[in-house]
Amino acid sequence: MSTALGLAAGLAIHRYPFPGKSVLDRLFSSAFAVPTIVLGIGLLQWYAQLGMASSPLTLLLAHLVLTVPYTVRLVLAGLAGLDRSAELAAAGLGARAPQVFWHVTLPAVRGPLIAGAFFALITSFDDLTIALFVVTTDMQTLPVRIFNYLQYNYDPTVTAVGTVVVLFAAVAVVIIERVVGVAHLFGADPEN
């Protein structure tokens, strides 16, 4: 979900003038500067004011707040290097807007979009701080379950789980490198 929302927001910020565009752009940039504990407490208070009990929906919304800025920033970086003349040429040759998007724009931002999806997945999967404030005893993420387990148990189970998580992150990085390539992702010439 954060990938789709990040793509839509990135395209809107990059391409279209609308009221509050600069505020929205700064909001997505400032999300990296807010400590996650502050974000978690803020979301808990906001949910309490709205009368929303902890649920899968509140956890999903919290993780979207945490992860969408990654995809927006990476999509904006990908769009900054996109030459609009290819899109205009496709449109000039009779392609409709969805065809231009699917065959020209989306392939141009494919690398940053994949990287944003992996960043969002890893960040969401590894988040403890925000999840502590929005989960219940019935619904817990893996990091919260590990945190609770460590309070009462001292055995190698957590070490094994931690190893799997680190391997998962390493595999994600290797996949990004193989599919997209880090040099291509940031617009660098891989030959140099």
Rank of each mutant, 00 (worst) to 15 (best):
residue 29 S to H: 12
residue 160 A to S: 08
residue 138 D to F: 07
residue 23 V to L: 15
residue 151 Q to E: 14
residue 172 A to N: 10
residue 55 S to C: 08
residue 133 F to I: 07
residue 63 H to S: 07
residue 178 R to G: 04
residue 181 G to F: 00
residue 169 A to D: 03
residue 18 F to T: 01
residue 172 A to D: 08
residue 110 R to M: 11
residue 163 T to R: 02
residue 187 G to Y: 05
residue 117 A to N: 11
residue 165 V to K: 01
residue 158 V to H: 04
residue 135 V to D: 11
residue 26 R to V: 11
residue 89 A to Y: 02
residue 10 G to M: 08
residue 59 L to Y: 08
residue 39 L to N: 01
residue 145 R to W: 12
residue 50 L to V: 03
residue 160 A to Q: 10
residue 58 T to Q: 11
residue 13 I to R: 12
residue 19 P to T: 02
residue 153 N to F: 15
residue 19 P to E: 01
residue 28 F to V: 05
residue 140 Q to P: 01
residue 52 M to I: 10
residue 153 N to L: 05
residue 91 A to Q: 10
residue 8 A to N: 03
residue 17 P to N: 11
residue 46 W to T: 15
residue 122 I to S: 12
residue 115 A to E: 10
residue 96 R to G: 13
residue 113 L to H: 00
residue 164 V to F: 03
residue 166 V to I: 07
residue 135 V to E: 14
residue 180 V to I: 11
residue 146 I to H: 05
residue 62 A to Q: 06
residue 161 V to C: 05
residue 45 Q to C: 07
residue 175 I to W: 09
residue 83 D to N: 14
residue 104 V to F: 05
residue 142 L to K: 00
residue 6 G to D: 03
residue 121 L to Q: 07
residue 90 A to R: 07
residue 50 L to H: 09
residue 92 G to H: 02
residue 100 V to N: 03
residue 29 S to P: 00
residue 16 Y to G: 00
residue 65 V to G: 10
residue 45 Q to R: 13
residue 6 G to P: 06
residue 21 K to R: 15
residue 100 V to R: 04
residue 67 T to G: 13
residue 191 E to M: 07
residue 24 L to S: 06
residue 137 T to D: 15
residue 158 V to G: 08
residue 60 L to I: 11
residue 38 V to E: 05
residue 130 I to W: 09
residue 80 A to C: 04
residue 63 H to C: 01
residue 38 V to P: 06
residue 185 L to K: 09
residue 186 F to E: 05
residue 72 V to T: 07
residue 102 W to I: 02
residue 15 R to F: 14
residue 46 W to C: 10
residue 144 V to Q: 00
residue 185 L to M: 12
residue 126 D to T: 03
residue 22 S to V: 08
residue 66 L to I: 06
residue 171 V to M: 00
residue 39 L to P: 05
residue 180 V to L: 09
residue 27 L to H: 04
residue 166 V to N: 01
residue 79 L to Q: 11
residue 161 V to P: 02
residue 16 Y to Q: 13
residue 118 F to T: 11
residue 179 V to F: 08
residue 74 L to G: 12
residue 9 A to K: 08
residue 79 L to W: 09
residue 82 L to N: 04
residue 16 Y to A: 14
residue 28 F to T: 02
residue 83 D to M: 06
residue 152 Y to M: 08
residue 131 A to W: 00
residue 67 T to L: 07
residue 65 V to Y: 06
residue 109 V to H: 07
residue 28 F to R: 03
residue 38 V to W: 03
